[in-house]
Structures are given as structure tokens and as C-alpha cells.
């Protein structure tokens, strides 16, 4: 069964249609990279997956749990779907270590000792062992985003959602974040990544989706789509990104 299933899923804010009815399945282990011009509905689509946006029509199932279910169902989905935000959204009053320990303690109800063990291992994994007792304000953007990735992983999700994780970063800081994401992908994590990083899409993505004006216009293998762009609009888009 698919990890994520959009079934005629639609979303509108008032009269403004952000997502036209969409059918799409994302399988376990897939790294789906979603690209498209701003305002095309990429972020909204991503936020529908973990219920941060309520869908307006159709159904959307994550690991066979519907986002239309009870508040508890939605929380179960969120436990399974870690999210990384464009603006990091780290808790500014907690150190890197405490940020990562927060999920295990509060969401998974693990002991502080267990949480510390998980957090230490994850901060090591994202290359921040040296900085675990720093506050977010004492870290660079790239470091903050890596802490945010560790924080999301600490809840032991089955899939990860990335909402433009590198858009707020300097070009040289992007690479350290992309490297962590690449490692994650190579370990078989299911990932949905909204980004403008075409290089990442080509290197790491197993699937490339192009959205425009609330519709999923193209869906294919990244290498093929980038070498022979399937449509004029997509070709235009590539020229503007690169």
C-alpha cells in the first residue's frame, strides 16, 4: 500500500482554488521532489499531508490513516510524518539538544535518558555534536536547519516532509543541509521535498513532480525530465531556476 495517497484531494481558501482535485500516490522509500513557480500550491499540498492545512474535498490517506479522521488520527499521522520548515522554527528558549529531546519526551512519552540518547545520536548524525548545547540564536542558518531535521527525526517518523528547507539559506550553507537530506534518502526514508534545488532533485530524487496553478502537470523520473523537459512551461521554469 502506498505511503501517501491523494484521492481527488482539493483545497481552496474561499473562492481561491489552491489545489485542484488531485490523484497521486507516493510509495514507501520514494524521494518525491516537488517543484513549480511560487503560488502553484506546492507548500499547501505538503501541509495537507500532515493536516496543517485542512483539505476541502476528496480524501488524503497517510499510511492508510485519513486526514479527515478524528483529532487523534491526525496526531497519529503527524507522529509518522516529520516536518522541516523553511524558517526552521526551532524553539528559541531551548538548546539544540533540548530541541531534539522535546519530541521524544512530549510526543513519544519517552524518559529523559532515552530522549538524551536519541538526541545525542541524531545531532551526531547531522554533524552537530560540537554544538549540542548552543541555543538556536548561536547557530548559523544551516546549523539551525540541521537541528530542525534532527528534531523531526527524533519522533521516529516513517516519512519526512520538507517545505523549502534551503530557501532561507545562503548558497554555501545549503550544501550542508542537502547533504544531510541525501544521507537520509540513502537510508531509505520516504521523503516529500518542496524545493527549487534542481541539483538535489537530479542527484537524490526518485521522482520529480512539477506543479503549476494548483495542478500536478508533470510527473516523472528526474533525470529524464531534466534532460528532455516534457513541456514548454516546464522548460521555461527550468531556465528561470538555473
Amino acid at each position: 500500500m502506498s505511503m501517501i495517497e491523494f484521492q481527488q484531494t482539493s483545497k481552496h481558501f474561499g473562492a481561491n482554488v489552491v489545489l485542484h482535485p488531485l490523484d497521486l500516490a507516493i510509495e514507501r522509500g520514494e524521494v518525491a521532489v516537488i517543484v513549480g513557480p511560487s503560488g502553484s500550491g506546492k507548500s499547501t499540498m505538503l501541509r495537507c499531508i500532515n493536516g496543517l492545512e485542512k483539505i476541502s474535498g476528496g480524501d488524503l490517506r497517510v499510511d492508510n490513516i485519513s486526514v479527515l479522521g478524528s483529532a487523534r488520527d491526525v496526531r497519529r499521522i503527524r507522529l509518522e510524518a516529520g516536518m522541516v520548515f523553511q524558517q526552521f522554527n526551532l524553539f528559541p528558549n531551548l538548546t539544540a539538544m533540548q530541541n531534539v529531546m522535546f519530541g521524544p519526551i512530549r510526543a513519544r512519552r519517552q524518559t529523559r535518558a532515552e530522549a538524551r540518547e536519541i538526541a545525542t545520536a541524531l545531532l551526531h548524525k547531522v554533524g552537530l555534536s560540537e554544538r549540542m548545547h548552543h541555543y538556536p540564536s548561536q547557530l548559523s542558518g544551516g546549523q539551525q536547519q540541521r537541528v530542525a531535521i534532527a528534531r523531526a527525526l527524533a519522533v521516529q517518523p516513517k516519512l519526512m516532509l520538507f517545505d523549502e528547507p534551503t530557501s532561507a539559506l545562503d548558497p554555501e550553507l545549503r550544501q550542508e543541509v542537502l547533504k544531510v537530506m541525501q544521507t537520509l534518502a540513502s537510508e531509505g526514508m520516504t521523503m516529500v521535498v518542496v524545493t527549487h534545488e534542481m541539483g538535489f532533485a537530479q542527484r537524490v530524487g526518485s521522482r520529480l513532480l512539477f506543479m503549476e496553478a494548483g495542478r500536478m502537470v508533470h510527473d516523472g523520473k528526474p533525470v529524464e525530465m531534466l534532460s528532455t523537459p516534457p513541456g514548454e512551461r516546464f522548460r521555461d521554469f527550468l531556465q528561470h531556476v538555473n
Binding site: 483529532a71 522554527n89 512530549r106 528534531r151
Partner: peptide, 29 residues
């Protein structure tokens, strides 16, 4: 910041936990 609330919710926490453990410590100061 609204993003902190979303970060808490996105971990699967109920809103009251987010209010108590994410928002309150910052709002208190």
C-alpha cells in the same frame, strides 16, 4: 511566532501541550 506553534503541532502534540510547553515559556518572558 506562529511557526513555533506549527512546529509543535507537526510533532503530533495536542494543542494544549503546545500551549503549555512551547508557547507559554516564551510568552511568559
Amino acid at each position: 511566532p506562529f511557526g513555533l506553534r506549527e512546529a509543535g503541532l507537526a510533532m503530533g502534540l495536542p494543542f494544549r501541550t503546545v500551549l503549555l510547553h512551547v508557547i507559554t515559556p516564551i510568552a511568559f518572558r
